[in-house]
Amino acid sequence: MDIFLENFFNIDSLIQIYPLLVQGLELTLLLAIVTLPLAVLCGLLIAILYSFHIRWLNILLLIYVDVLRSFPVIVLLVLIFYGLPFLGLKLGSFAAVVMAITVNNSGYYGEILRAGVESVPKGQREAAHALGFGPIRTVVYIILPQAIRNVLAPLASNSLELVKTTSIAALVALPELLRSARVAQEQTYNPTPLTAAALIFFVLLWPFARWVAKLERRTMIVR
């Protein structure tokens, strides 16, 4: 028991590496704050384009979404960070992570929002048109508000996944929470920083996870 506590809950080591963890947390939050709106925006664009029902465009969008869905985000990151420089495009590690997560999640958000758009009955579009709404206003004022409400639970759930995905940044040596914890572990020869990082993730995301669970249950009852 003592060995366990000394290794995983070592207070001295925690005090020593505390600043590193705070820095890591800040970077994790920054990554989430930058990528989340970007990915949602890209997904929204996909869903809006899809909702115009232009056949060739919809086929292209479906292919885009399908490719991204069957592609691990970590592979995408490695391709962007280590592959793109061969094409003359060298991104910093922060930019590479933002790009990988945004592109990957744009597919997921796009798919969720597309399903939301499809869930709005055809009569809504017709009523809007009959009142004089053009294609863009119809989508903005009538279709999207209903679409988003119908898929709020999967949207929130995917956002939770996105925040967790930011830890792939550790792979390209970006000192977010996980990477900082690894560095701290190497400095102190003690895995306590890893436990701390895990706990921080938990404390950060658990309330959000509870909220998502509630949303999911509510939409199940309503439908």
Binding site: G123, Q124, A127, A128, A130, G132, Q146
Partner: peptide
């Protein structure tokens, strides 16, 4: 688009399924 918009502003429509905006 212009002729369609002009006509739609001029002509109101009521549907079998009401089609009110639920949000």
């Amino acid at each position: 688009m212009r002729s369609v918009a002009a006509v739609r502003q001029d002509v109101g429509m009521v549907f079998q399924q009401f089609n009110l905006f639920p949000h």
